[in-house]
Amino acid sequence: MSLPDQARQALEAFEQGKGWEQRARLLMQWGDRLEPLDETEKTEANRVHGCESLVWLVAEQVEGLWRFKASSDARLLRGLLALLLVRVQGLASEELAGLDLREWFTQLGLERQLSPSRSNGLHAVLQRMAELASNR
């Protein structure tokens, strides 16, 4: 399966990123590119629980394809969310359900950020996405 353009860019950037400092800088840059959420989208229903930070995931389907928006009050987590969205944006439910997102973050060298421990929200966001993909 071919990668979306932005995902390919991300992969190139992170593959070259050596060391924790550069990875962190890249994460912050990608986080800054996230489309901001309206205050009206920061609802309880859109909140992803199970994170120590505030995380929102807005999901809608347009003609069968998923459109996601996401944000967090934590900066590095915004970067992780941005990297997630470039991979899943515009997929159909079957494609989303069949996607190995752990593998995606492993390719980026960020697999440790998927730890199920609660200090990081990414794990919970992936669970929410998997639920969405299987329900519709």
Binding site: W20, E52, S53, A74, R75, L76, N120
Partner: peptide
């Protein structure tokens, strides 16, 4: 500075401290 961001960067540098409630 968000405490999750600091916690993230401390973890990256091998410092095991606790963040959260």
């Amino acid at each position: 500075v968000h405490n999750a961001d600091i916690a993230h960067l401390l973890t990256e540098q091998g410092i095991a401290v606790r963040a959260g409630h």
